[in-house]
């Protein structure tokens, strides 16, 4: 069998992965008012990672992204629970949220909501779970991970 040639896939991946990461950040910040949010943003980010894994292989991505995605899951869960517990400080029920408008230097008048912090936890958890599932399925030889 002749050696397969995937230069088109590799070249487009360098472009499209960045477009996907940008779109995921847009979706993440569009959440809680418009379509978007932490879950679908994390799904987009892991889609970009999976595309890079498909184009460049396991070994080289371990060098580029030296992250063990299993440790991302508890970090996200801790952030999500901590934002829920943080509402106890102000004497509010669990997971209650608020928002306010601020005058930021570059962005102008911006709405900042505490739901964004909860979304950050969801975002990290979704990335961790999705990448763990896909990478575990992808190498099923029982090799070292």
């Amino acid at each position: 069998m002749t050696r397969t040639n995937d230069i088109i896939l590799r070249t487009t991946t360098t472009l499209i992965a960045f477009i996907l990461l940008g779109f995921s950040i847009y979706l993440f910040f569009a959440g809680h008012n418009k379509p978007g949010g932490g879950f679908i943003g994390g799904l987009m980010t892991s889609a970009a990672f999976v595309l890079m894994y498909m184009a460049y292989g396991f070994r080289s991505l371990q060098k580029i992204l030296p992250i063990n995605f299993r440790f991302v899951i508890p970090v996200g869960l801790i952030i999500a629970v901590a934002t829920g517990i943080g509402s106890f400080i102000f004497g509010e029920p669990f997971l209650s949220q608020t928002f306010a408008y601020f005058q930021l230097p570059v962005l102008g008048k911006t709405e900042l909501a505490t739901a964004l912090l909860f979304d950050l936890g969801v975002y990290l958890t979704v990335i961790g779970v999705t990448m763990t599932i896909i990478l575990t399925i992808a190498n099923d030889r029982g090799e070292e991970r």
Partner: peptide, 22 residues
Amino acid sequence: FIGTVALAKFLEKGVIIERDMD
């Protein structure tokens, strides 16, 4: 798009995420 790329790679190589490309 991701699904199509994965499908094409599976049909051609039989494996989607390889350990070593080169």
